[in-house]
């Protein structure tokens, strides 16, 4: 595989995580428990979609086929989406949304901290803008995890249930394949082996403070990085891509 090809796919992986989870968070708009939280979740959503735009704009340049960031977002079929399965899981209740965000934002915090040092200057520049936002996302998710876990009987049950149900989607976060290994060699990408340990320690610390139980590793879902998704992504894309599919090249 040529280096451009590998980099293109790597950028799509990063972009798809933030686009799909950003879209999921946008589904809370007008439905959050109260208005301040409505704003918080949609702010995080906009941060993630903004990061996606930077990543896809660069991906389009790397690909060199005259596509735009919008083409990549709105015209790619499900099998060519490479987000983690974690990101496409439906919102569930508020605790479920928070647990999903905690797992992904913790992962992104360590990943983007390393991407700051990427030899690819554009990627390092995107990381330096994103890391400030990600720090806030992680703070928001960990504060809520602790508040709900160490809260009422009901909130504790819901928070633990969310953590347990999402645990099987966390193994995939640390998979390395030939694409990432090749880019790691040229110091473009990040080694996920040490990230896994950092992630485990951080999650252990937050869940312990939240008086929650860290689940045992059991069967782990996989496939997202290769375009094999759960039944939820297709429906999400149906809604997200509707306009461009129904009215290609529509303009305001």
């Amino acid at each position: 595989m040529k280096k451009e090809e590998a980099l293109f796919k790597y950028l799509l992986r990063l972009a798809d995580d933030s686009l799909i989870l950003g879209h999921r968070l946008s589904e809370w708009c007008s439905k959050a428990p109260f208005i301040e939280e409505d704003l918080a979740l949609t702010n995080i959503s906009l941060d993630m979609i903004g990061r996606t735009e930077a990543l896809l704009t660069y991906a389009a340049v790397v690909e060199g086929k005259n596509q735009t960031a919008d083409d990549l977002a709105y015209r790619r079929p499900e099998q060519n989406y490479y987000n983690h399965l974690l990101c496409e899981q439906p919102n569930g209740d508020f605790a479920f949304t928070i647990a999903r965000q905690l797992f992904q934002s913790t992962f992104e915090f360590f990943l983007y901290s390393e991407l700051l040092k990427s030899k690819d200057e554009t990627l390092a520049a995107i990381a330096s803008k994103s890391i400030k936002e990600i720090k806030y996302h992680l703070q928001h998710a960990s504060d809520w995890t602790i508040r709900l876990g160490d809260g009422t009987e009901e909130s504790k049950i819901r928070m633990q249930k969310a953590v347990n149900e999402l645990w099987m989607f966390t193994g995939e976060l640390f998979e390395m394949d030939e694409i990432e290994n090749a880019l790691l060699k040229s110091a473009f990408a990040v080694d996920l082996v040490p990230i896994k340990i950092q992630w485990q320690n951080k999650i252990q610390q937050i869940l312990t403070e939240a008086t929650l139980i860290v689940p045992e590793d059991d069967y782990m879902q996989t496939g997202g990085r290769n375009g094999i998704h759960s039944e939820y992504l297709g429906h999400l894309l149906c809604e997200m891509q509707y306009l461009q599919r129904a009215y290609p090249d529509a303009k305001w």
């Binding site: 208005i35 301040e36 939280e37 704003l39 918080a40 702010n43 703070q139 928001h140 504060d143 508040r147």
Partner: peptide
């Protein structure tokens, strides 16, 4: 939470 909500709002 007050600080975060103030920031977001």
């Amino acid at each position: 939470m007050a600080m975060q909500n103030a920031r977001d709002t």
